[in-house]
Computed example of a mutant assay.
Amino acid sequence: MGLARRALLLGAGGLVAGAATGCSGGGRTGAGAAVVTRSSGPLPTTTAWRPDRDDVDPAVKSRAVQVVEAIGAWPAGQGGAAAAKRRVAALGAAPALVDAAGPLLPDADEAVLQVIDAQYGGILADSASVLVVCRQWTPGHAGGTTVDVRLSRARPHWEVTALHPARPGAAAPALPAVAREVLAASRIGLPPAAAADIRSGHIHESVLRALLRLAGTYRMYVSVIRSGHPLDVFGTDRPSDHPRGRAFDVWQIDGHAVVDPATSRRLVETFMWDAAAAGSYNVGGPVRLSGGARGQFFSDATHHDHVHAGFSA
């Protein structure tokens, strides 16, 4: 299953990359309810996203992705908030969620959406944050966003309670050389919101230099840098390093999803050690490493599906 899923990943990645004028693309694929597909025409064909069967709770991610797909993709003639509310209602979710969709609902006659990844922003017994990272195309435009989807446990589905789309801010008039290097680096996959974060000029130099250093050894796909992440560490009142531009998350290393049990634990562990060597004071992932500075490494359910690297300065 791991080999087949990675083959699908590479196929979808190549397709999406070509449609996005050279940007890196990808995403785990599979069955879903609300993805618009096209075999020809100006908009690319997309594939629905599927959680890994060994995920902490696949159902919570599936529910979050269903709602984002329902809002962000529609066939010709079915654009607008009213139509999006009908699609969301058909899923048994609250139509009012559409009112907070923001960049996920551009003014266009038609749209397709590709979920690149869905990772936890936090997961507790009865509540969760799922960060749905996506690209979106409308006629004549390629874009995308990351949506912090909040959920509460309910029956028969997890209930989506709120949407918080990324708001990276305007591009800075000038960027330092290190930011331009990251944006141009072929070994660093950046989804739309993360790339916009860097273009905004709000990402700390320590983050950018660490990304470049890691790219000397690995091909990696970033999920989240600054925008689209919860302001506080989920379930606490402690500010997260992400909104301050001092952290990044990676969901894929050398073509292998961190969440995939077939991915080499040695690969993930080595990447975590190298993130620490690149200056991260706070490295989290699916494996808790021993050694390093006090409290430098951690692991929990939230970080089962990605590697987090935080920076203090």
Rank of each mutant, 00 (worst) to 15 (best):
V160C: 12
R87E: 12
F271R: 12
R153D: 09
V222H: 01
R38N: 13
P239I: 09
H303L: 01
S129K: 01
F234R: 00
D54G: 09
R53W: 03
G25Q: 08
F297I: 00
F298W: 11
D254T: 05
L91K: 11
R294W: 11
G292V: 07
T21K: 14
S206F: 09
G284N: 02
H304T: 01
E69G: 04
A194M: 08
M220E: 09
D237L: 14
L8N: 15
L91I: 04
R219H: 14
V160K: 10
G2R: 11
L124Q: 15
C23W: 15
W273K: 15
E205W: 02
A193R: 04
P192N: 04
E181F: 01
V56E: 01
R187G: 02
L113E: 06
S280T: 10
V133A: 03
R294C: 03
G189I: 00
H141Y: 05
G18P: 04
V268C: 12
S290T: 13
P106M: 11
D305P: 02
P261L: 05
A179S: 13
H256G: 06
A82G: 09
E159N: 14
D57V: 03
R155T: 13
T217C: 02
R219P: 00
S200N: 04
V233F: 12
R219T: 13
R6Y: 03
R246V: 12
R244I: 01
K61I: 08
P51V: 03
A20T: 05
D55S: 10
S129H: 12
D109H: 01
W49T: 05
N282W: 15
A313W: 14
F311W: 10
T29I: 13
W251D: 11
P51E: 02
G169V: 07
V112M: 10
L151D: 05
A70C: 07
V207T: 08
G235V: 00
A33Y: 14
G284A: 09
P156H: 07
A142G: 01
W74A: 02
L105F: 10
L43S: 01
I116A: 10
A111M: 09
G169N: 04
A84Y: 06
A96T: 14
L43W: 07
G228I: 06
L214F: 06
D126I: 04
S227L: 09
P139C: 08
A7C: 12
V259N: 08
D232K: 07
R265M: 09
A20V: 01
S280E: 06
G92H: 06
A48F: 06
L208N: 06
V147E: 01
L231D: 15
V16E: 13
G201V: 08
L3Y: 11
P173A: 10
